[in-house]
């Protein structure tokens, strides 16, 4: 598969501070890649280099088969810190951005109308941007990124601040764009959102790439090898019975206190264990644990940084979740 973005040995410094160091990255054409990382990891700097807003100090970047500068008009970008010209009308603003992005000048009004209808804002074309609600403004900002129908779309925290209804609309549009062959880079702190939308993930920390894998690869690599069992009726002698099951290394009570978590060895056969557990009696819950991106994020950061940084990442996750 060809690459929409090829980053080779890229580094960027701001004075004494190293923002990105020796970064190699290939983003396959047509993929929807989640770019993860704690604040200050180097995500935004990398994206700005892909957009040729910043120039790398070292290494090379190729975007859509060209230099980053030459591919500029074929990229759509929704920055994390985004805004609008307050006194411009929505139509004026979107037309202006579309023109700057090189969209054909003929039929630009129809293009704006079409996209406003697609994002469920049909009646705001003549309104000034400052008259729109925050949610509406965010949708207009999203349109500014896609109005010229780019081949590569970079979305930095697209769901931040959106209510659930508007988030669903945006989610649908992102999926549609991806289905139409647009390569999408999605930067987010909302791991569950990334997990449901993205098919591959890149985790950057301290300016370096720490993870670059598909969802299946992530699940395999970070498989917790754990089984959650909650019997309908628990008896005191049940815990020793669980410890004796083949392939079970350890048993500990669940966090909610209603069941047990069984750590499995490499030789454990989940199908066999499921059968044996059901033989012990009826179960309220029986589930092979699946890794979440939250855990992957924390684990990778912990590995890279140590316990203190991991705590910070957990705090950020909680903050983003709340």
């Amino acid at each position: 598969m060809s690459s929409a973005i090829s980053i080779r040995g890229v580094g960027k410094r701001f004075g004494e501070r190293i923002a990105v160091s020796g970064l190699d990255l290939e983003i396959p054409t047509g993929s929807l890649t989640g770019v993860l990382g704690p604040n200050g990891a180097g995500k935004s700097t990398t994206i700005r280099m892909v957009l040729s807003i910043l120039l790398p100090d070292e290494g090379s970047i190729e975007v859509l088969g060209k230099t980053a500068l030459d591919a500029k008009s074929r990229i759509g970008y929704l920055p994390e810190e985004r805004g609008l010209y307050r006194t411009m009308t929505v139509e004026e603003y979107l037309s202006y951005i579309a023109k700057l992005k090189g969209a054909p000048r003929v039929g630009i009004q129809q293009r704006v109308k079409h996209w406003l209808e697609r994002i469920e804002l049909p009646d705001v074309a003549r309104k000034k941007c400052q008259e729109l609600s925050k949610g509406m403004q965010q949708k207009v900002q999203f349109l500014a990124a896609v109005i010229h129908e780019p081949e590569l779309l970079i979305l930095d925290e697209p769901f931040s601040g959106l209510d659930p209804v508007n988030a669903v609309v945006l989610d649908r549009l992102i999926r549609e764009l991806r289905a139409n062959g647009v390569t999408i880079l999605l930067c987010t702190h909302l791991m569950h959102q990334a997990e449901t939308v993205c098919d591959r993930f890149v985790l950057i920390h301290k300016g370096r790439k720490r993870l670059d894998a598909t969802l299946a690869q992530v699940r395999e690599r970070f498989d917790p090898r754990e089984l959650h069992y909650e019997p309908l009726r628990a008896t005191p002698e049940l815990a020793p019975q669980l410890s004796r099951l083949p392939g079970v290394l350890a048993v500990r009570p669940s966090d909610d206190g209603h069941g047990w978590r069984l750590s499995l060895g490499a030789d454990a056969a989940p199908e066999e264990l499921f059968r044996r557990l059901l033989d012990l009696g009826p179960a309220r819950a029986l589930e092979l644990a699946r890794v979440t991106l939250d855990h992957v994020f924390v684990r990778v950061v912990r590995e890279a940084e140590g316990e203190r940084a991991a705590q910070q990442a957990e705090d950020e996750l909680h903050a983003a979740g709340s």
Binding site: L51, S52, I53, L69, K72, S73, I75, Y77, P79, E81, R82, G83, L84, Y85, R86, I97, L100, K101, Q141, A144, A145
Partner: peptide
Amino acid sequence: EEKSNRVMEVLLSAVS
């Protein structure tokens, strides 16, 4: 104004 209302980065994604 373009800096403070955060429209600058959008512009810079389109023009140098």
